[in-house]
Design a protein around this nucleic acid. Structure first.
Lengths: 239, 239
DNA sequence: TCAATAGTGTCTCTTAGACACTATGAA
DNA sequence: TTCATAGTGTCTAAGAGACACTATTGA
């Protein structure tokens, strides 16, 4: 049998297929630190551990559509910036069966984070930390610093997610997905510092962001401060 | 029925699953320009068009293992640097059935490219060009510049591949995957210029690469030149 | 006036580009 | 000696960090 004959007869429907899922890394900021939305696992496997919201991909459902559906159904978030992160397919990642999962990174504003927690009461916002090593899994913890054990390979997924976000924060527009429509330069810097975990130089940061052409001044200023109110900016796509 | 009851009864094996495949973007350099390995499609759909080497993922096969298997079986390449690129899952990307494909980027040295073409005679090395627009599909052509029509969404995949490679060329070690174990600084610069499609400043490039700590001098020099022979370097991982 | 933060001017340091220069081996 | 390329010294320009300074609001 030649390869052409083999291929003509080959019907992949005859072969067992891995299940295909999406998992969502929904990141927000709280108290100047990154948090991720996790749900408790009630059943085996990994009962008592904490897992990313996820779901299976329908046979007539786009990957992005599946991610959006999980965002609505499991995380109660009306909208979030979503981008594909990486696809995890290790044989042993789920002991029940072979599941390949396309992970998505989702970024939530403070309002979207609060809304998701209100709509999906079983979720909690867990503080996220990365080890010093350049790879290796991220760790989740309560606000008091008590570790939250992660289910499956979700620590690895979180590691990839936070590193990806750090890597593209400075040269891309993702940072604005964590801010409301109107924001001050200090808020923008706070977002960057929270994601990177380091302090940034104020004049340099302002120069850089203004030179990027991303910031449209509104002429309006924040209200209710007891000090000089900062100007409010709006994000605009670079032309 | 509560959500917990629904989930307890839910068996994804009862639902139809998308087929899962890997597609390989095997890039090399030829004549100072990027080329990609493509095979002709003999059957419908897209008969007469050119496609990336690919194959279905086995139920007990890792994603990376599937990519490696396709590399050996369909491209006859003994070894190549492989990294996961992006997962393509549009509903209409294959008219026969729903196929979700995890695309991998593979980088071939000149020797590996020649070996692959010798081992897999149906493949050809097609010149690769990107449109000026920041996204949009790449285009393949013969060495004479005649366009080669691409099958499925493989133009999109090639666009993502070349842009990803360009983006990480300068800050990562991927460039060395296109060079033999011993190489000159000029060869390294030629690789970067071919991928980026622009000329680079020689002193600045040398300084930058030497400062990165990636280059181990060997003390040896190239032979057979009719001019001053350049020093040969070896790649070493940064500590 | 003071406190607190917004926002800026300027110096320095690092790094990239430009460009010319020296070095080296073969014909 | 000439040719072609390897490899370097140095000037300049751009951008980031450091730091102090001015500006603006409410209390």
């Amino acid at each position: 049998m030649t390869e052409a004959e083999f291929l003509a007869r080959y019907d992949p429907a005859d072969y067992p297929r891995p299940a295909l899922a999406v998992d969502l890394v929904l990141l927000g900021l709280r108290g100047g630190r990154p948090v991720v939305l996790l749900g408790p696992r009630a059943q085996h496997p990994h009962a008592g551990r904490w897992a990313l919201p996820g779901g299976f991909v329908g046979i007539a459902e786009d990957l992005e559509a599946a991610a959006g559906r999980v965002l609505r159904e499991k995380a109660g978030a009306a909208q979030a910036y979503l981008e594909q992160l990486f696809t995890f397919g290790a044989l042993t990642r789920d002991p029940r069966m072979r599941i390949v999962s396309v992970a998505y990174l989702g970024l939530l504003t403070e309002a979207a984070l609060a809304e998701a927690l209100a709509q999906a009461p079983s979720l909690r916002a867990a503080a996220l930390t990365l080890p010093a090593a350049p790879d290796g899994p991220a760790e989740a913890a309560t606000e008091r610093g008590e570790g939250l054990p992660l289910a499956f390979d979700h620590g690895e997924i979180l590691g990839v997610a936070l590193r990806r976000l750090r890597g593209k924060l400075d040269y891309s527009e993702v940072g604005f997905a964590l801010l409301p429509p109107l924001f001050t330069l200090r808020q923008l810097q706070d977002v960057h510092e929270a994601i990177l975990g380091t302090a940034l130089n104020k004049p340099a940061f302002r120069r850089r962001m203004l030179d990027r052409g991303w910031l449209a001044p509104t002429g309006r200023h924040e209200a209710g401060t007891s000090y000089r109110p900062a100007e409010l900016f709006r994000f605009q796509k670079t032309p």
